Simulated assay, not measured.
Amino acid sequence: MMEPWGLRPQDIMHAHALSILANINRNKEVRPDPYEIKDFMLFDKAKQPAVDPKIDGKTCEEWKLIFAAEALAAQRSKPLPP
């Protein structure tokens, strides 16, 4: 919260630049209302599907847990160096 770095702030900055570029080049007769930052947000929660899509019957979060468990098991099966 104190240092807002990461994906969301970068997405906002990029969307802001794109909205400026689009507004500079828009045809005011075809589109009288200016573009807004939210029109160019890639990771806007409002645009996300309400239900997580499933792959082989599992959600994205379930796959993350499976991969994390497999990585942990692989790491534990390696012999320790002498």
Results as ranks from 00 to 15, higher is better:
52 D>V: 07
80 L>K: 12
14 H>M: 15
40 F>E: 00
1 M>G: 15
53 P>A: 08
70 E>S: 06
1 M>R: 15
53 P>D: 08
23 N>W: 02
7 L>D: 14
10 Q>L: 14
56 D>L: 12
12 I>S: 00
54 K>A: 03
15 A>E: 08
73 A>M: 10
14 H>S: 08
18 L>S: 04
3 E>N: 13
6 G>Y: 03
42 L>K: 06
82 P>F: 01
15 A>C: 05
54 K>G: 07
62 E>A: 04
7 L>I: 13
7 L>G: 04
34 P>S: 08
10 Q>C: 05
8 R>L: 03
13 M>C: 13
81 P>W: 02
31 R>S: 06
35 Y>Q: 04
69 A>V: 05
43 F>R: 05
57 G>I: 07
21 L>E: 13
10 Q>P: 01
58 K>N: 04
36 E>K: 15
81 P>E: 12
75 Q>N: 14
78 K>Y: 11
25 N>H: 13
75 Q>D: 13
78 K>W: 06
78 K>I: 10
72 L>V: 15
71 A>N: 09
39 D>L: 02
22 A>K: 08
63 W>D: 14
77 S>F: 02
70 E>T: 07
9 P>W: 05
30 V>T: 15
39 D>E: 09
50 A>L: 09
26 R>L: 10
13 M>Y: 05
11 D>W: 01
4 P>F: 11
73 A>L: 09
23 N>L: 02
2 M>V: 11
66 I>Q: 03
66 I>W: 01
47 K>Q: 13
75 Q>L: 11
55 I>R: 11
39 D>A: 01
33 D>I: 06
15 A>H: 09
75 Q>G: 14
69 A>G: 12
3 E>C: 12
46 A>M: 07
77 S>T: 10
15 A>M: 04
19 S>H: 01
28 K>W: 10
53 P>L: 07
29 E>F: 08
40 F>V: 00
10 Q>N: 10
58 K>G: 02
14 H>G: 06
51 V>I: 12
39 D>I: 04
26 R>G: 02
42 L>P: 00
61 E>C: 07
65 L>R: 12
82 P>Y: 01
38 K>A: 08
11 D>P: 08
46 A>R: 01
76 R>Y: 11
56 D>K: 13
41 M>C: 06
37 I>K: 04
49 P>F: 05
5 W>S: 14
49 P>Q: 05
66 I>L: 13
64 K>N: 02
53 P>I: 04
52 D>P: 12
21 L>Q: 14
25 N>D: 05
24 I>P: 00
68 A>W: 05
40 F>M: 01
46 A>D: 07
69 A>E: 11
7 L>T: 12
34 P>L: 14
68 A>L: 07
49 P>I: 01
32 P>E: 10
64 K>W: 00
52 D>A: 15
47 K>N: 13
12 I>Q: 05
20 I>Y: 01
61 E>H: 05
70 E>R: 14
71 A>D: 15
21 L>V: 13
46 A>P: 00
8 R>D: 06
50 A>H: 03
18 L>T: 04
17 A>E: 08
75 Q>H: 10
56 D>V: 12
65 L>Q: 09
17 A>W: 00
73 A>I: 04
63 W>G: 03
37 I>G: 00
23 N>A: 09
58 K>E: 07
9 P>N: 11
59 T>L: 12
67 F>G: 03
